[in-house]
Nucleic acid binder design. Structure first.
Lengths: 357, 357
DNA sequence: CTGAAAGCGCTAACAA
DNA sequence: TTGTTAGCGCTTTCAG
């Protein structure tokens, strides 16, 4: 039944006009009479014509595609952003294509150069790390917008979140709840936003006159597993924290698991705050108090900036920073020494339990 | 510094050969002397030549790209598969591009037709639901392989997992542990694999002579939240189950949360088994006993089948079904009435606690 | 083994 | 308002 894929030439022929006229009509460009335009559109719809984006691109024009470059999509953070960019793009008539770069790739640069930039009018790059890909992207001669990267090393416009401010809110919240021994589980510090969170933690503690115990800052890697271990160690301290601030939600989940493993409860014995507000944060129990990254806003801002950059000759390298917001749910509560003493085990007992497992 | 993007013509000119010779050399085709080939390759690498895939595709050839079509990437299932296909493709010299279809789209069909098929040599479709997109895909005249879809309604080759067999393993495992009241939290039953799990649950119960209580089968939607509610209801039954089998891991997480919310423990009071074995399953506490979908194998099979389909004229519509495997971890244990009685609360008490929250 | 010609489907740039 | 010409970068013919 379906013969060939219809081409512009066919549409034009049937409509009895030139390819250019048909092209103009289909792309909503000026220079076509209403009647002709309608006729062309009707015929196109009729025979199921769909523009060939490769040809469109090759011939030097725009093709209505935004490329998204991201490392591994197995983290919720990137997923949310991809979803958001997809929606935002669609809202303005653009399609999106996602290209995943694998860290393992030695010659990823070539692939990168050879893919999205050739297919898309512009690229949204979700590259949290200081990356060598920036140079590659720059060489591709395609408008680029970075997400979650201060871009201090590049000239690309970028969209980022005020991690520092958000983290301050988290620590302040805990302080207001009466916590004085607040721990921090850090993450991969090659990510600027993560470094900011750590700085904010220290600065806020200092500003509020709370004790800064080096033992309360432990290294994580943004994974649930690692946070579990880190939190377990924290709870084994002679003087364990009453609250733990994790560098991301996944880590916070690990912390909660560790607290439970130790026979303690959240938030009764230990308060926990995360960072990101991935969808699951609201669905776990107890619902996670966390700092929200405004994914939708970021995505919209990225798309808008990119579109401007595509349209204009040279967009000024804007650096947009969006505020993060504290979302108070159930995982952080007032400190309660009484309850804590009643339920808690001694550090040694806790350690023994863990060893046996 | 970076001038223009180098083209094949430039490479050819510098090498002092024709475009065709350069093309042949770069694509590893026969008909070029070793010396010439090496020289061309050297020059190409030298000036940083990268083939333009749009042009490649447009001119009627392959372009070494596999497209992946998936609905929303916010579920771990798809993420794993995307990752797997990406790796498998890369291993054989292909790149991948991901296109996300949004359910909301009314005219997604046109977009679909207009995107991946135009850019890629073939398409891997991760479309768990019986979908109208199949027709669209068929009209695109591109090799397609389906993942996780029996494909009963289509002629596309497909890769799927033996959900039925996997679910049987889960139920049998629980039975071996001594459980007799085993509940099932279902999912979106428009997904064939999910329907299979439910059938397997019933059949196995029947086969083993265990009681089939309709109250023990509750509707979920594969989300953590919904499973939490469903499991809470189950625990409020006059005669609650001692084990709960969830249609996917996310649901299982919700179940575990619900069990804890009810003041019970996993697996001491209630055993829980999931389905999928997403990475997080191994990282939560207690580590989830679950049925593993062989994502890597599925991905590899899909890529291989697709490649065959691209190479050969008409590949026979193969239907590959991979076995699922039970992964025994910590969330399911032997039934223990004694302990259960000691810790459990009465159904009414549980319900009251929930109401107050 | 190598090269010249033609064209994939489309859109800029020019005419008319 | 419309049509014509050229060409994007590559690969398929088909000749040498």
């Amino acid at each position: 039944m379906s013969k060939q894929i219809p081409t512009l030439a066919q549409v034009a022929k049937i409509a009895g006009v030139s390819q250019m006229t048909a092209s103009r009509a289909l792309n909503d460009r000026p220079g076509v009479s209403r009647e002709t335009r309608d006729e062309v559109l009707r015929i196109a719809a009729d025979i199921g014509y769909v523009v060939n984006r490769s040809a469109q691109k090759l011939s030097g024009g725009r093709n209505g595609i935004i490329g998204i470059i991201t490392p591994m999509l197995d983290n919720q953070f990137a997923s949310e952003l991809i979803l958001g960019v997809g929606r935002a793009a669609r809202a303005v008539g653009y399609e999106t294509l996602v290209y995943t770069v694998f860290d393992e790739d030695r010659d990823a640069h070539r692939s990168l150069l050879g893919l999205l930039p050739q297919f898309a009018d512009g690229v949204v790059a979700i590259l949290p790390r200081e990356s060598a890909w920036f140079d590659t992207l720059a060489a591709a001669h395609v408008p680029v917008v970075l997400i979650d990267q201060r871009g201090s090393l590049t000239n690309f416009p970028s969209i980022s979140v005020d991690s520092y401010g958000g983290a301050c809110l988290a620590v302040e919240h805990l302080a207001e709840l009466g916590h004085r021994r607040i721990a921090f589980i850090s993450g991969d510090e090659t990510i600027e936003g993560v470094r900011d969170r750590r700085r904010a933690y220290s600065d806020t503690l200092g500003r509020l006159g709370l004790p800064q115990d080096p033992n309360l800052v432990v290294a994580g890697d943004l994974s649930q597993m690692r946070a579990f271990e880190a939190a377990s160690d924290l709870l084994c301290l002679a003087e364990p924290p009453t609250a733990i601030f994790a560098a991301n939600d996944l880590s916070a989940f690990g912390v909660i698991a560790a607290v439970r493993e130790a026979g303690l409860r959240v938030p009764d014995d230990v308060s926990v705050i995360g960072f990101d507000d991935i969808p699951m944060a609201a669905q776990v129990h107890p619902a996670l108090t966390t700092v929200r990254q405004p994914f939708q806003q970021m995505a919209r801002a990225a798309v808008n900036t990119l579109l401007a950059s595509i349209a204009g000759t040279e967009a000024p390298a804007a650096r947009i920073t969006l505020p993060a917001e504290l979302v108070v749910r159930a995982s952080a509560g007032p400190v309660s020494d009484a309850r804590k003493k009643a339920t808690g085990r001694s550090p040694k007992a806790v350690r023994e339990v863990r060893k046996q497992a």
